[in-house]
Computed example of a mutant assay.
Amino acid sequence: MVPSVDGRIVTDRWDLPPTFVSEYERTAATFGADAWMIGRISMEPYAGKATIPRRAPAERIPRTDFVARRDASSYAIVVDPGGKLRWTSSDIDGEHVITVLTEGVEDAYLAFLRSKGVSYVFGGRTEIDLGRALARLRASFGIETLLLEGGGKINGSFLDEDLVDELSVIVAPVVDGSVGTPTLFDRSSSRRSRASTPRHFELVSVERLPSDLVWIRYRRRR
């Protein structure tokens, strides 16, 4: 993630230097990850605006994982519980798309994903169980290392479930100061009581990058 000094993550107004993108990609590549994941809202610009047929298929589609491709060099994963994204393609810059759904998604939407060649796994009946979803991604696609790249709500959900092993942030030389904008971790007050438990990390490294960016890595303290 690339937060401001005060932890905000909406970068549109920051006027960051061109090196920001290249440094983000360079540092991310050091993890050798099998896949990256973002939330539905963050994924919308990548998905497109295809028309989703509303007519259900003649036979009910079983609620089992659909693997359109398991040999991709990298995967782009989105958590989309209700099945709202309107995919025009099954890949993003060559990375195969996988969507994480709940079992309540309509058959018409599952048929739509299959027609587009988009893989999917089920993370729960009515809500996403992130631990279950990660287990399915490993079992069906062999994904072992996953980069979680926001936004704040999905980051907060992973933190709530204690599924963040390492934190890698490039701190931008900006103080945002805005009120009500997403932060690095936006944790839901409606979750179980353990959601409010602070998570402790230990410092791994600090590196100054070009254009006054600072790369900081932390590892979860167990």
Rank of each mutant, 00 (worst) to 15 (best):
D80Y: 11
K153S: 08
G152S: 04
G7Q: 09
P17G: 04
S211Q: 12
T27W: 02
H96Y: 08
A58H: 11
F20C: 13
V78S: 04
L163E: 04
S190N: 09
E161L: 00
R86H: 11
R138F: 14
A35H: 06
W36Y: 15
N155L: 10
R208N: 09
V179T: 14
K153D: 07
V5Q: 11
S42T: 15
R8Q: 07
P57E: 04
A47Q: 02
Y109H: 03
E144T: 14
Y218A: 03
I170G: 00
G152L: 04
S119T: 13
G83E: 02
R69W: 08
V2F: 11
I9Y: 01
G104I: 01
T30H: 10
V97A: 06
A68T: 05
T30N: 08
V206E: 09
G180I: 14
L209S: 06
F20Q: 13
R191S: 07
W36I: 00
L159F: 07
R192M: 04
R70I: 08
T183H: 14
V204D: 12
I154Y: 05
V214I: 15
L209I: 14
S178L: 10
R221T: 10
T27S: 06
F31I: 10
A28E: 04
D34Q: 13
D34C: 13
L146P: 04
R26G: 05
I77K: 05
S119M: 06
A58D: 12
S211C: 09
R54Y: 06
S73E: 12
D129F: 12
V118L: 03
S211P: 03
T102P: 01
G48W: 13
D65F: 00
A172S: 15
R132K: 15
G123F: 05
V79L: 00
R208S: 11
E127H: 13
L85G: 00
T11R: 14
D15C: 15
F66P: 01
S189F: 05
